[in-house]
Design a protein around this nucleic acid. Structure first.
Length: 783
DNA sequence: CCAGTACTTAGGTTG
DNA sequence: TAAGTACTGG
């Protein structure tokens, strides 16, 4: 079958290419048959081993189509493909099945969708969609959303799915029922069932469904399981310590036939237990495959001796761990600096100063440096300080491009056009931009849908037969349906043309164009950027050879559904300091690392203190943070910090005490807040500088002048005119020119409603289309 | 319907 | 403090 593929690569690769690896690494990469577990300490060249192992498989003649490699992020998959491409050939690398669990199995689910009753163009609900649907259900059931908090409900449902507990099993399980009853949330099971029904009716799957339904598919259809067992003869799983039960079982089933399964992980770096990841999977692995060969990668190539020893001294305080000794041949390096600041703001200033010193003394670039923190809220004081010193930075994990409102709005149009049953999208845009479809009308439609067991879309399409809504409202709903249908006609055509057409004729671009504030302009630019992205998508060729897909809008949407902001590439100025949470830093490395806010109740976090397992997870998190550093590691804490606008007094973290103290440089006379060093620019010039409030200097009031004020909205500039005398509008009709006290001149395009309670739709020159109730609106009739 | 105001709440977050 | 939602007057 594998007709001597190795031959083709003989010239390109010298047979001894595995000599680039150390002994254990080489064994791990060359033991290609049978179950293998690789325990890979931090910085031990794990990615390198995976890369070489896959290249080795291809070199030995395995067809890339038969290799499945599951990674933690799409970015990791992309980078690994590039590296493998350089070892073998780009076309072979392209043909690998490589990606996250979610993206790989979403692909498979689309192929097999009809077996489980879904269309292949099913929508993927993201967390916001899920939450919004849960909110709807809670409201419909008349439950209190303070008891049934959408976040909590979702995490409960998610955890059920990740443990493969169906809604039926949930509702039949005495233990679960008792647990929910005790916490006064006995309706959770009902919400779970309704949520599933609604997702199914909307032809939608949430993130957890992608794994759950894969399990259902493989269990219910042995022939499908067989097909993929045949296909995936070699399976590799990265970051195995962070997989959950649902993922574990998928892998176990797929690997059952050939048993060529290789998992790579490090129990010391397991930091996602809080959402279902299970270290037990590693222990299970040994039970499932008694023939297993285990390799321990213990030599660290990343960090100095100091950093490796410090990290080891931390992790040894955890009881639960596999035996492993991480060591390094690297230099001792510098000691770890510990900095103490008076307040969170001062912490930012000290760090910024320190970054200047490091860059000046050690020829580091901004991009060699990362600041890591426990919670996103901590980024503020760091940003402020960096901005003041003109140090360019980039924040990971902020509001990603695809989460911006204007982008979600346009994507909702695309989603609805592709899958008109997608109710979350429909509700989002049916009246945006405003087209006079009010809350009452929509509620009537939803009620009708529930009554007849139809989707909202089906009600809209069959409105004339159902005769629930009549008159002007029905007219506008019909117009909406006609518009969406006309978009659907163009689905097979050019994706960019269709997308642009939708953005224009939905009125979305016009709506955004009406807003002349800087924010408004930037929203418009974002939409244009998305359209550019679609053009770019069309211009790039399809990833894999076996699916020569048309670059339609539908395919584009499938592509971006599972993106995260870790996937965004750095277009402008790559030379920036990186800011991110420790969670987001997993798998990354930098010459210089700052870990900030190492205080009790923050790191370890307050909530983790009550249980040993949670505290140990925090400690692993600290271990991950420290082991990101290659040469320079700086830790810091503050004595005071703002939390929810209140001052909180802090104590340095127990984790600091746990570090081998010989490796630390303790805060030698932490700078008093009276005299900080203030740098002017990137040169080393600096001057002493006195703060305004001696003593408690850094507890300065917020909203200082350094923070740019938000530009005022145009509304604020339009004075309320005392000479404005409104006209009688009881006979207002379409086509009339009017003037509004605040919105200025505009043209009436529609008037409806009973006399005395009329609603007018007016396009204002400067403010776009608005609907106004005439009993309130003060209008002057011009013509 | 629109827009300003009062009130509530707050963890880390793959895809 | 900041963001998001619910309420209310025009």
């Amino acid at each position: 079958m594998e007709s001597g593929r190795g031959f083709r690569y003989f010239c390109k690769m010298h047979a001894n290419f595995l000599n680039d690896l150390n002994t254990v690494q080489r064994q791990a990469a060359d033991t290609t048959e049978g179950p293998v577990m690789i325990i890979a300490g931090a910085g031990s060249g794990k990615t390198r081993v995976l890369t070489y192992r896959i290249a080795n498989l291809i070199f030995k003649g395995v067809d890339p189509f038969h290799i499945l490699a599951l990674t933690f992020t799409n970015k990791a998959a992309r980078e690994m493909k590039i590296r493998i491409g350089k070892l073998v050939s780009e076309s072979d690398a392209r043909n690998l099945w490589m990606g996250t669990f979610h993206s790989v199995f979403a692909k498979i689910l689309r192929i097999e969708a009809e077996k489980i009753g879904y269309p292949s163009n099913f929508t993927i609900y993201d967390t916001d969609d899920s939450k919004s649907l849960i909110k709807t259900i809670i409201n419909e059931l008349g439950l209190d959303d303070k008891i049934y908090k959408p976040n909590l409900v979702l995490s409960r449902i998610s955890s059920a799915k990740n443990n493969l507990i169906s809604d039926r099993e949930y509702n039949d399980n005495a233990e679960i029922i008792e647990e929910d009853r005790k916490s006064a949330k006995s309706k959770l099971g009902l919400i779970y069932s309704l949520y599933n029904q609604r997702c199914f009716k909307a032809s939608a799957m949430d993130f957890d469904d992608l794994l759950y339904k894969t399990n259902v598919l493989l269990k219910k259809y042995p022939e499908v399981l067989y097909k993929y067992q045949q296909k995936f003869r070699y399976i590799l799983v990265d970051e195995y310590q962070d997989t959950n039960f649902s993922q574990y079982l998928i892998v176990k089933k797929l690997a059952a036939m050939h048993q060529n399964i290789c998992v790579v992980g490090d129990d010391a770096q397991s930091i996602y237990a809080f959402r279902g990841a299970n270290i037990q999977n590693i222990l299970n692995f040994e039970k499932d495959y008694p023939e297993l060969k285990t390799f321990k990668l213990e030599q660290n190539y990343r960090s100095t001796k100091t950093i490796v020893q410090a990290a080891n001294s931390i992790i040894k305080h955890n009881k639960d761990q596999l035996k492993k000794v991480v060591w390094t041949d690297n230099h001792d390096g510098e000691k770890i600096s510990l900095l103490q600041a008076g307040t969170d703001n001062e912490e930012g200033q000290i760090i910024a100063n320190r970054i200047f010193e490091l860059k000046a003394n050690h020829q580091l670039a901004n991009s060699d440096i990362a600041i890591l923190y426990r919670t996103n809220a901590q980024s503020r004081s760091m940003e402020e300080a960096l901005r003041k010193r003109n140090i360019p930075y980039r924040i990971y994990g902020g509001l990603s491009f695809y989460k911006r409102k204007e982008i979600r709005d346009l994507l909702a149009y695309f989603r609805l056009v592709i899958n008109p049953k997608d109710e979350e999208s429909l509700k989002r845009i049916i009246n945006y931009p405003a087209r006079g479809i009010g809350k009452t009308t929509l509620e009537k439609v939803i009620a009708t849908a529930a009554e007849h067991q139809l989707s909202i879309w089906e009600v809209l399409v069959n409105m004339s037969q159902l005769r629930v809504i009549t008159g002007a409202s029905a007219q506008r709903l019909t117009e909406f349906v006609t518009m969406i249908k006309s978009f659907q006609q163009a689905l097979t055509g050019n994706a960019f043309d269709l997308a642009t057409h939708i953005a224009r004729s939905s009125g979305l671009l016009k709506e955004l164009g009406a807003d002349k504030t800087p924010e408004g302009v930037s929203r418009q630019e974002n939409v244009l950027e998305l359209l550019n992205g679609i053009q770019e998508f069309i211009d790039t060729e399809s990833e894999s050879e076996d699916e020569v897909q048309e670059r339609t809008l539908e395919v584009f949407m499938q592509d971006i559904a599972l993106l995260t902001d870790a996937d965004e590439d750095e277009k402008n100025d790559p030379n920036r300091v990186s800011l991110m949470t420790i969670h987001a830093s997993k798998g990354l490395e930098y010459p210089a690392i700052f870990v900030v806010g190492i205080e009790e109740n923050l790191f370890p976090s307050q909530a983790s203190l009550s249980s040993r397992t949670e505290l140990e997870e925090e400690r692993r998190l600290f271990y991950v943070a420290m082991t990101r550093a290659e040469k320079f590691l700086t830790l810091s804490y503050a004595l005071m910090r703002y939390k929810y606008g209140q001052i909180q007094y802090c104590e340095k973290s127990r984790f600091i005490e746990e570090i081998d103290q010989d490796l630390l440089i303790l805060p030698s006379g932490a700078p008093k807040s009276g005299a900080l060093l203030e740098f002017d620019d990137e040169r080393t010039s600096f001057r002493s500088f006195n703060r305004k409030e001696p003593g408690i200097g850094s507890l300065k009031p917020k909203n200082n002048a350094a923070t740019p004020l938000k530009p005022k909205s145009p509304t604020a500039f339009t004075p309320t005119r005392s000479d404005f005398v409104p006209d009688d509008t009881s006979n207002l009709s379409s086509g009339m020119q009017v003037e509004h006290e605040r919105f200025g001149p505009g043209k009436v395009i529609n008037v409806e409603g009973k006399p005395g309670d009329k609603k007018a739709t007016i396009i204002f020159q400067a403010f776009g289309q608005k609907q106004l109730l005439l009993k309130f609106a003060k209008l002057k009739i011009i013509a």
